[in-house]
Nucleic acid binder design. Structure first.
Lengths: 198, 198
DNA sequence: AAGAGTCCCTAACGTCCGTTAGGTTGTCCT
DNA sequence: AGGACAACCTAACGGACGTTAGGGACTCTT
């Protein structure tokens, strides 16, 4: 009998539910019984797919990075400024347009126990490395030892948008990406002059 | 008998412990038994000082805002650019130099249940209002409806420093504040030119 | 037809949680 | 001296948690 619209296997439904709950509740407050109920199975059955709660959430966090990396690698722009803007847009896209995994990673990573975080660090490093290389390429005069700091400031602005930005609002994700990019590159100074000293 | 160095009352020790645990563990993972042990009392005794776990953490979050507001109001600079830099420095000071309350607020606010968050929103609004006014004053040409967004981007950069900055490192808090301020005002463009299109 | 493997269930385990009732001690006020 | 009150204790409650053992139903392979 042909399945209509492929009902999504249980394992995937648990992962999806975990990502969504993580965003709203964090690691500790998200219970396996909740996830099981969300996915339409019973709590004990979660252990057919995952060895433990930690194991499950490691999978969620890693998927969150995967989504970011995929979005990053999909960018094709070549002209420096355009490239940077496209990557900012891609990062925001990963946060808001490709499920809850990246959002879960960004909001809940630091609420997870150290053992879980440790398991995810290598993949994180890979994504950060991509951005360091991008900065090196776009801003050749930026000293190498300033790249991580610069990236962290940009990440700070981009990642905290999940706390206040909503796709349903009047601002589009394209607009937001453009604003963040120009703010990052030219600062507020360029378009909005500082009041002169009196 | 004169108390040597005022042994800090139990209520205060519980609050301090709560702020520190919040930074490391978030709301749900922090238990009253832990806090009591940290403060040198027993779990049941916490209820002599606070009506509930929620009540306790509302006090912690509000104190976190208080510290920020106090730091903000302590700034005396008048020249626009200098003022902005001083406020950035003050905000970072609240995060790193005046106990864990502000850090707890910034990292754990969104891990707290909605009822707790709701109780803290008014004080948050007051602090955000101060910053909106500051931006209006320093950047008179910045449209009023862009102020909140601009503030959120700056807050994003400043607040996420708690995830990676350490006072013990080679970078001082003064340095960090200066970098964030100039990055915010002039962008990366000013000091580090973009690679020209090829 | 038999066996293996997948997916899920029920029922329970030990543990820890927030919270409460009631008691003890010490200090201060009158 | 006595009462009030603050600060803490012990001991327990009901409930929820992560996890496990063992079994049922179904599909696929041989």
């Amino acid at each position: 009998m042909a399945e209509p619209a492929a009902p999504a296997p249980g394992r995937q439904r648990v992962l999806d539910a975990a990502a969504e709950r993580l965003v709203e509740q964090g690691y500790a407050a998200t219970t396996l019984r909740q996830l099981a109920a969300d996915a339409g199975i019973k709590a004990g059955s979660v252990y057919h797919h995952f060895a433990s709660k930690e194991d499950l959430f490691i999978a969620v966090f890693n998927r969150g990075i995967e989504v970011m990396v995929e979005a990053f690698d999909r960018v094709e722009a070549v002209e420096p400024l355009e490239r940077l803007g496209a990557h900012v847009r891609a990062h925001l896209g990963a946060l808001f347009e490709h499920g809850s995994y990246t959002a879960a990673h960004v909001t809940a990573f630091f609420t997870a126990p150290p053992e879980v975080r440790a398991e995810v660090v290598p993949q994180r490093d890979e994504y950060e490395h991509r951005w360091n290389d991008l900065l090196a390429d776009v801003f050749p005069d930026l000293p190498a030892d300033r790249r991580p700091l610069t990236r962290l400031l940009l990440f700070g602005s981009m990642n905290t948008t999940i706390e206040w930005f909503h796709l349903s609002g009047s601002l589009s994700l394209d607009d937001l990406a453009a604003i963040i990019t120009s703010q990052f590159v030219d600062g507020i100074h360029a378009s909005h002059p500082i009041r002169s000293a009196r």
